[in-house]
Design a protein around this nucleic acid. Structure first.
Lengths: 218, 218
DNA sequence: GTAATAATAAAACAAACGTTCAATTAATTC
DNA sequence: GAATTAATTGAACGTTTGTTTTATTATTAC
């Protein structure tokens, strides 16, 4: 056989991306074979090469789009206010919502960096650094304004990001806690961790913002 | 050739473990070939099978010994006092020290769980759960005693562990910060995160820290 | 309806994989 | 010093890997 009835390049490519993210998240990049991926999509392995020249190109595409999506989400969510607490709350909300929503690509982007070529690794890390820099700026501003008490901005930023991203390791939608509850708790922990001066600030923020991305699911 | 001069089973096995931890941490379990590992050790691939029947046995051994080591280290470090703050401080210190000291096997144990068979995965996860349970007990005791203010014990435990273990992602010995400095800062962050009631409690525990109080605001 | 193009299948490739086996030599035992 | 055991090599096995090539069919354009 050859071209199949109803076949469509765009649909196939999208199916490949989604299946790849799922398989790599579950089994790992090296462990996922192109034949396994093709079977998941419902095509032959050779068909994959119409969309991605190599396996690594596929991996890189997933990672690049993950980082572009994260950056874009933050640019949408970033508040205009200069208030460090409000900005930090927005950062936490956006980060958790995005990563829970895209668990698979988050796993891929965090665990499979070592499978990228040097150049591509550099490109992904540059995007990641730029994103983290936003958090450091918030922490620095807050410290200088006296609303946070932080010992080391860079170290605190890393600790916060590890803590927040770690949600995807144990969080499963539909279990004990909702996304909104998790986000609220993480927001409180974050505010205490950075020593936010105003007591109950976290609670105030979580009460005042029932919208936001998908945080309002309950 | 056959047996080489000065060859010793115990030494070779130790060399295999160490080289395997390093290679798996750097390239991943699936990406590391037995030939690559053998070359690192300085033997032929077939020689590895004298010590580990399969590649997965090797992985499992690394993980089991990592968890056994972590458990043993905590049993040594666990204080006899009932004071939740002292116990939490000891837990944080032990966790960070152990994971920085064993970066490679930590990477292996955290990233390669999916390559274990079902039974072995269960065994490793059981050990891990038991270790994490200790932290939850401390947090619960502290909350009941009124010295911590925590919203969700289980969630806080996961957040803390992710935060602490995340150190190995960015920490490199001999760079900007020493192990002692990192530990001190993480201890402060932890105490604030759990809402330790006694103001300055974190500072008290880190009284011996080698740098100033609000040193790095930049 | 016919020509052009897009999408896929089927088969094949060399390379690399984990693992096994027989042969061989070093160290140990008595 | 002969017999035994421990440690390792070198070659080979059957699979599986990512990828390429060629042929074939569905869809689109005119």
């Amino acid at each position: 056989m050859a071209r199949t009835t109803g076949s469509d390049g765009e649909k196939t490519e999208a199916a490949v991306r989604e299946a790849a993210a799922g398989l790599i998240a579950r089994y790992g990049y090296e462990a996922m074979s192109m034949r396994q991926l093709a079977a998941e999509v419902g095509v032959q392995a050779a068909a994959l090469y119409r969309y991605f020249p190599t396996k690594e190109d596929l991996l890189f595409t997933l990672m690049r789009e993950h980082m572009e999506g994260l950056t874009a989400a933050w640019e949408m969510a970033r508040p205009t206010t200069a208030d460090p607490e409000a900005r930090l709350a927005a950062y936490v909300r956006n980060h958790i919502a995005f990563h829970i929503e895209r668990r698979h690509s988050t796993h891929v982007s965090n665990m499979e960096l070592r499978s990228l070529s040097h150049d591509r690794l550099t490109r992904i890390l540059r995007m990641r650094t730029a994103y983290e820099k936003e958090l450091r700026a918030i922490l620095r501003d807050g410290t200088e304004a006296g609303v946070f008490s932080i010992e080391d901005t860079g170290l605190t930023a890393m600790a916060l990001i590890q803590m927040m991203t770690g949600v995807i390791v144990w969080f499963r939608p539909g279990e004990r806690l909702s996304v909104a509850e998790v986000t609220t708790t993480y927001l409180s922990m974050t505010m205490r961790l950075v020593g936010a001066k105003i007591e109950g600030a976290a609670a105030a923020y979580s009460a005042a913002r029932p919208f936001g991305r998908s945080a309002a699911g309950v």
